[in-house]
Lab assay of single mutants.
Amino acid sequence: KLPPGWEKRMFRSNGTVYYFNHITNASQFERPSG
């Protein structure tokens, strides 16, 4: 389970998975720990 605010997303163009935090508007490719 991801830390609060984080969700898994995917770029439609190339299928790359990334993680987005809707609380802080942060995004990263590494899976957030917590």
Rank of each mutant, 00 (worst) to 15 (best):
K1Y: 11
K1T: 12
K1H: 13
K1L: 13
K1P: 13
K1N: 12
K1G: 12
K1M: 11
K1V: 11
K1W: 12
L2M: 06
L2E: 15
L2Q: 00
L2V: 08
L2D: 15
L2P: 15
L2G: 09
L2C: 00
P3A: 04
P3M: 00
P3G: 03
P3T: 01
P3F: 00
P4W: 10
P4M: 08
P4E: 09
P4H: 07
P4R: 07
P4K: 06
P4F: 11
P4Q: 06
G5R: 03
G5T: 00
G5Q: 04
G5V: 03
G5F: 05
G5Y: 04
G5K: 01
G5D: 05
W6A: 02
W6Y: 02
W6S: 02
W6P: 00
W6I: 02
E7I: 07
E7Q: 09
E7P: 01
E7M: 01
E7W: 04
K8S: 05
K8M: 14
K8I: 14
K8G: 04
K8T: 09
K8R: 12
K8F: 11
K8N: 01
K8V: 14
R9M: 09
R9D: 07
R9T: 02
R9G: 02
R9H: 08
R9E: 08
R9Y: 08
R9K: 11
M10W: 14
M10E: 14
M10H: 13
F11V: 12
F11P: 03
F11Y: 14
F11H: 14
R12M: 14
R12V: 14
R12Q: 14
S13T: 14
S13V: 13
S13M: 05
S13E: 14
S13F: 12
S13L: 08
S13R: 09
S13G: 13
N14D: 15
N14A: 14
G15A: 06
G15P: 00
G15S: 04
G15D: 03
T16I: 15
T16G: 11
T16N: 10
T16H: 11
T16R: 13
V17T: 07
V17M: 05
V17N: 05
V17P: 10
V17G: 04
V17K: 03
V17F: 11
Y18S: 00
Y18G: 03
Y18F: 08
Y18P: 01
Y18K: 00
Y18V: 03
Y19Q: 00
Y19W: 09
Y19S: 00
Y19F: 07
F20M: 03
F20Y: 14
F20A: 05
F20H: 10
F20S: 02
F20I: 03
F20Q: 03
F20T: 03
F20N: 00
N21E: 03
N21M: 04
N21A: 00
N21F: 07
N21R: 02
N21Q: 02
H22Y: 14
H22M: 11
H22Q: 11
H22S: 13
H22G: 08
H22W: 12
I23H: 08
I23V: 10
I23Q: 06
I23W: 06
I23E: 09
I23D: 08
T24G: 06
T24P: 03
T24N: 06
T24W: 05
T24R: 06
N25W: 07
N25D: 06
N25L: 12
A26P: 02
A26L: 13
A26Y: 05
A26Q: 15
A26R: 12
A26S: 11
A26D: 09
A26H: 10
S27P: 01
S27W: 15
S27G: 04
S27H: 12
S27N: 03
S27V: 15
S27M: 15
S27R: 11
Q28R: 02
Q28M: 08
Q28W: 03
Q28E: 04
Q28H: 08
Q28D: 01
Q28F: 04
Q28G: 07
F29G: 05
E30Q: 11
E30W: 07
E30A: 04
E30L: 08
E30M: 05
R31F: 15
R31G: 03
R31W: 13
R31Y: 10
R31L: 10
P32A: 00
P32T: 00
P32I: 04
P32K: 00
P32R: 00
P32L: 00
P32Y: 03
S33H: 08
S33I: 12
S33F: 11
S33G: 12
S33E: 13
S33V: 12
S33L: 11
S33A: 09
S33M: 13
S33N: 13
G34C: 15
G34M: 12
G34R: 09
G34S: 11
G34Y: 14
G34P: 12
